[in-house]
C-alpha cells in the first residue's frame, strides 16, 4: 500500500479534514509514514517579518498555524513527520512530491468558487495536474 503519504497542510480546517483521510490511508500499512508538508509562502514573508519581533517569534506563529493538524495526528497516534518548505505552495508541493517519489498526495480543497479560483488559483488543482503520483483531494 502507500508507504510515503504526503499530507499538504496550510493549517486550516480543510487540512484537518485531509489529515483524517491520510490517517485512514496510513492505517492499511504499519510501515507507512505521513509526511506533513507546510509551505512558507514567499508572499507572506514581508508581512510576517514586519509583524513579528524576531525570527523566533515568526517560527512560533507558524507552528501555531499548523498546530491543529499536528494535534490531530498526535491524538490519532499516527506515524508522521513534518517538513517545512519555502516558496509558492503549489509548485513546491509538486516538486517535493516528485523529488521524493512519494506514493500519494493528500490535500484539502479550499472550496473556492469559479471567480476566486481564477484570481487566487487553486493549489489542489495545480498539484493534482502536475504531480507524478496519485492525489487525493479532500472536500
Amino acid at each position: 500500500m502507500y508507504k510515503h503519504i504526503l499530507l499538504a497542510s496550510d493549517g486550516s480546517e480543510n487540512a484537518v479534514r485531509a489529515a483524517k483521510e491520510a490517517v485512514k490511508l496510513a492505517s492499511y500499512d504499519k510501515e507507512s509514514i505521513i509526511d506533513v508538508i507546510y509551505v512558507i509562502d514567499y508572499e507572506k514573508s514581508k508581512t510576517d517579518v514586519l509583524h513579528a519581533n524576531s525570527s523566533e517569534a515568526i517560527d512560533v506563529e507558524r507552528r501555531k498555524k499548523n498546530s491543529k493538524v499536528i494535534q490531530f495526528l498526535q491524538e490519532e497516534n499516527a506515524n508522521f513527520k513534518t517538513t517545512i518548505l519555502r516558496g509558492k505552495p503549489g509548485p513546491e508541493i509538486v516538486r517535493y512530491a516528485n523529488d521524493q517519489e512519494v506514493d500519494i498526495i493528500v490535500i484539502g480543497s479550499r472550496g473556492l468558487n469559479t471567480l476566486q479560483e481564477m484570481v487566487l488559483g487553486s493549489v489542489s488543482h495545480k498539484v493534482m495536474k502536475r504531480a507524478h503520483c496519485p492525489a487525493l483531494i479532500v472536500k
Binding site: 510576517d48 517579518v49 514586519l50 525570527s55 515568526i58
Partner: peptide, 12 residues
C-alpha cells in the same frame, strides 16, 4: 536590515 530579515526568512 528589514530587507535582510525578509530575505533570511524567505531563504531560511
Amino acid at each position: 536590515l528589514l530587507t535582510s530579515q525578509i530575505v533570511d526568512d524567505m531563504t531560511g
